[in-house]
Design a protein around this nucleic acid. Structure first.
Lengths: 203, 203
DNA sequence: GGACAAACTGGAACGTGTTCCTATTATGGC
DNA sequence: GCCATAATAGGAACACGTTCCAGTTTGTCC
């Protein structure tokens, strides 16, 4: 895994035929399935290609590296989480209560699938600038989830809100890394995150 | 790079002979030299062994994986930074001013050597529980640097101080990752960190 | 100094991410 | 339907982290 994979991934929009969109979907399905089963190490490019019923070269045409592949999978998982949260209003009287609720819900989802979380988190932390597009998408999703939890009614957010959301995101990521790498328990992780949120959103 | 390197590194204290301490030093020297030159990818185990004038098997006896090696190098760099800061009192009237000073100084040091920083940061983020000992040491160093900046006079620190220091450390790490992976400029990184510190230490 | 164990050397070998090449198959324009 | 082009299949080949082994050197105890 060199960190200098230079080629770009094929954007989803450029996938002309239905067969191509289907291949792409099969590839990400295979990725998530393998990751959920055995984590980062189990997502082997040959296995993904085989399970997606696609040649190795084709896999690399769609995703120029294992990291691109996993970060794209992360994006899809985030979309799911965002959609699930949008279904019902977020409970909680204050911003910090709502943010903690969202973090708990999301983290619970992640911790229910430790291998998958490990694989996706590792990929995210290892990604370099060649994955900037995919990373940026994920960052926007996270920021959107958090600012929505802070101010469910507002559609515009202040610069300060974004800054707070970014710090919370930072803490969340660091905690996630500590957890997936076995340096902290789920309980410790949750406690640390909630403490940080209360420090940042004193309401 | 499998994430399941199981063996333990040889603790420094267990290195009996002077020849062994010297080998260990040569290995870390070579690691830092290669990392400073070409980053994570340039730290190739064969190159490190060759430059340290040591057989590949011996390198693996001292450091059971590339990650252990780089995290140990990070520890040595942190020791240097901590010693440099201990030399003179930290300027600044308030805790946040002093913390920002320390972060600026440290970050400047890191950004003066982007390849080295990239290599060490990547390794830190990728480390799993088999590197827990080394990681813990680095975490303690960082925490100590930050709490000292917050309260230069005090020798005891409260639980709250440690929690704040941990959050600042989280933000610092995330920012560092954004920077080394080319997703944020040095200026953006610095601004984000300082903003976070002011949010956390309102003094 | 000799005998034994531990450490070291040099290098082969293996796994997995990545690249590359050729033959075959789908796709779109006429 | 037919051709030109692109996309895919299948698989060899390469790079680097890691493991392993046979032989040699170093260190320790008597």
């Amino acid at each position: 895994m060199s960190s200098t994979a230079s080629a770009k991934a094929i954007p989803v929009e450029d996938l002309g035929s239905a067969a191509q969109r289907d291949r792409r979907k099969r590839i990400i399905d295979a990725t998530i399935s393998l990751a959920a089963q055995g984590g980062f190490d189990a997502v082997q490019m040959r296995s993904v290609a085989e399970q997606a019923d696609v040649a190795l070269g084709t896999l690399y045409r769609y995703f120029p590296s294992k990291i691109h592949l996993l970060v794209s999978a992360l994006g899809r998982e985030f979309e799911r989480a965002e959609a699930a949260l949008a279904d019902s209003p977020i409970p909680g009287e204050t911003a910090s209560e709502r943010v903690i609720y969202v973090l708990r819900a999301t983290t619970r989802g992640l911790q229910g699938n430790p291998h998958l979380t490990e694989a996706l988190t590792r990929a995210f932390m290892f990604a370099d600038s060649s994955v900037a597009t995919e990373i940026h998408a994920v960052g926007m999703q996270l920021s959107s989830i958090l600012t929505k939890a802070m101010h469910p009614e507002r559609t515009d957010v202040t610069e300060d809100d974004v800054a707070v959301a970014r710090v919370i995101g930072d803490v969340w990521l660091s905690s996630l890394v500590s957890w997936v790498t076995g340096r902290a328990t789920a309980t410790e992780t949750a406690a640390h995150m909630e403490r940080a949120v209360r420090m940042l959103l004193r309401d």
